[in-house]
Simulated assay, not measured.
Amino acid sequence: MICDVNVYLSRWPFRRLPCDSTPELVRKLKQNDVTRAYAGSFDGLLHKDIRTVNQRLNDDCRSHGADLLIPVGSINPALPGWEDDVIACHEQWNMPGIRLHPNYHEYELSSPEVKKLFEMAAERGLFIQIAMRMEDDRTHHKLMRIPDVNFAALPGLMKEHQQLQVTILNGMKSLRGASLTRLTENPNLTIEIAMLEGVGGIENLMQQVPYEQILFGSYFPFFYLESSLNKLKESQLGMKIEEQITWKNAEHRFAKTP
């Protein structure tokens, strides 16, 4: 059993990816024993009609992966009426969480809109995923130089909502040292391993972050699914810890029947 918390549907804006059609993606996930995958949409990065993005995401998950894919709606609090998009994710499509891309949508986590968004998510029992980056800065299109998300305001936001679950996606390329320690002092903050590098990477990460706060994420199809699977093989975790990271931690924190 594997629960993947970092999957995307639709098309990456700048090139085609292997398995970027939903049926192909679902087939690949099932072939590799992924039994649950929390999926956002690449359309949520640049499209302004977020309601339609989330409608397509929901329909795609139900049409092609109802027994596997769980939709996680995009929210852009820099757009008018974003509150209605949160309500639709929760009430119309019964999504368990929302996914944020502050760097692509050009807002800071310290903004009043984000404070309100966190309040709405906490009231509705939604988890929040925040993507720190979407690609290595060396491969950015020259017209799309996108900086990493600044997480300085996140610990303060989470202290105001003790039960709110927040996961940082694609953060392990940049988050290190004191900045990572400060974030993970809150037990409701989790990170996933898609951009974790180095042999024995998970073992090394566990010296700084409790394994209860580490989740399996692949960032598939942007990254090869096998990349994250191999991270499990190259670290000596033991069955108990491997089960926690691959599915039990996510099941405990996020499980909700869509």
Rank of each mutant, 00 (worst) to 15 (best):
P96G: 00
E251N: 13
N230S: 15
M239N: 15
I130V: 10
P18N: 08
T184D: 09
P147H: 05
I245A: 03
T246E: 11
G217K: 01
V5I: 10
D84C: 11
C19T: 13
A78P: 07
A194T: 04
C89N: 02
A121W: 00
F151E: 04
K248G: 07
E113N: 12
P23E: 11
S179G: 15
K231W: 02
T52H: 13
L175A: 05
K256I: 08
N58A: 09
N150T: 09
L109Q: 04
I50P: 00
E243C: 13
P13D: 11
D43N: 12
S110L: 05
D59Y: 10
P147Q: 08
H101N: 13
G40E: 04
T190I: 10
S235K: 01
M206V: 09
Q244L: 12
G125Q: 05
I75E: 01
A178I: 14
P102S: 09
E106D: 15
N186K: 03
E192R: 02
L180E: 00
F127D: 00
L169F: 11
N54C: 05
F151V: 06
Y107T: 07
L225A: 05
S111C: 05
G73Q: 01
G125N: 06
V34Q: 02
R51K: 13
F151A: 03
M120K: 07
S227D: 12
G171E: 00
R99M: 13
F216R: 03
A250E: 03
S179V: 11
Y219F: 13
Q207S: 15
K233C: 11
S111T: 03
L169H: 07
S111E: 03
